[in-house]
C-alpha cells in the first residue's frame, strides 16, 4: 500500500501547484474538488487497519471536501460576478517558485520534527507542511475574498493530512469534529464573501481597510 499512498500524496502536491498557477476561480474550485477526492483516499492508504473508523472517515471526507464545500464555493461565485483573480501580487511563475521553496522547506523541516514512530507513509508530514505553506502563499498573494477562501482550504487540507499521521489514535468523533469545523468555517466565509460583495460592490479584500480602527 506504500506505493499507493505515495502516489496519492504526490497528486495532492500537484493539485496545490495547479491552484498556484490557476487564475480562474471556477478552475480553482474544480482543482480543490479533485484534492478533496484524493484526501478521501488517504485514510485507506495510511496503513491503519480498515474498519468502521476508516470507512466513516473516508465517506465523511468525500462528502464534505469533495461534495459540500465545492458546492458552496460555486454558489458564491454564481452570486458574485467574479470569475478571475485579477490582481495577484505575484504571477504564476512566482507562485510556482514560492511553492517549490515551500516544498523544499517542508521536506527539510520534516526530517527534523520528532514524529510518531512507524508511519506507514513517510510523505505525510512533509506534504502536510507543504500544503500548509502553499495555502499561505495563496492567502498572502491574492486579493479576492474567494481566493482567500481557497487558500484557507488548502491550509486546512494540510492540517488534515497531518492529522492522518495520527489516524489510528484519534477518536473518530474528533476527526468528524474537525471536518465539521472546516465545513462551518467555509460556510461562514462564503456568507462573508457574499456580504462583502453586497456591501462594497467588490470582492477586493483591500477595501476592508475601511474597517480599520
Amino acid at each position: 500500500m506504500d506505493r499507493f499512498g505515495d502516489v496519492v500524496l504526490l497528486l495532492v502536491l500537484m493539485t496545490n501547484f495547479a491552484v498556484l498557477v490557476t487564475g480562474r476561480l471556477s478552475a480553482c474550485i474544480r482543482i480543490m474538488t479533485a484534492q478533496g477526492v484524493l484526501l478521501a483516499m488517504l485514510p485507506l492508504a495510511s496503513g491503519a487497519r480498515f474498519g468502521v473508523h476508516i470507512a466513516v472517515l473516508t465517506a465523511g471526507t468525500l462528502a464534505i471536501k469533495a461534495g459540500v464545500l465545492p458546492r458552496i464555493l460555486r454558489w458564491a461565485i454564481r452570486e458574485a460576478p467574479v470569475r478571475r483573480e485579477l490582481a495577484p501580487s505575484i504571477g504564476p511563475i512566482g507562485g510556482v517558485l514560492l511553492g517549490l521553496a515551500a516544498v523544499g522547506l517542508a521536506f527539510g523541516v520534516a526530517t527534523r520534527l520528532p514524529h510518531a514512530a512507524g508511519l506507514a507513509v513517510e510523505g505525510l508530514v512533509p506534504v502536510s507542511l507543504a500544503s500548509l505553506m502553499m495555502g499561505f502563499v495563496v492567502l498572502t498573494t491574492r486579493q479576492k475574498a474567494l481566493s482567500l477562501v481557497i487558500g484557507y482550504l488548502m491550509l486546512e487540507n494540510g492540517i488534515y493530512v497531518f492529522g492522518l499521521t495520527l489516524a489510528g489514535d484519534i477518536p473518530l468523533l474528533v476527526e468528524l469534529g474537525v471536518l465539521l469545523d472546516v465545513f462551518v468555517g467555509v460556510f461562514i466565509m462564503g456568507l462573508v464573501v457574499f456580504q462583502i460583495q453586497r456591501e462594497l460592490e467588490s470582492q477586493d479584500s483591500r477595501r476592508l481597510t475601511e474597517l480599520r480602527d
Partner: peptide, 25 residues
C-alpha cells in the same frame, strides 16, 4: 505594524511560522 490589509496580517502569520520552523534548525 498594523496595516489595514488582511493579506499583510497573513504575511505576519507566515513570518511567525517560518521563525518557529527555523528554530528547529
Amino acid at each position: 505594524l498594523q496595516e489595514p490589509r488582511v493579506t499583510t496580517y497573513l504575511r505576519y502569520v507566515v513570518l511567525a511560522l517560518l521563525v518557529v520552523l527555523a528554530l528547529l534548525f
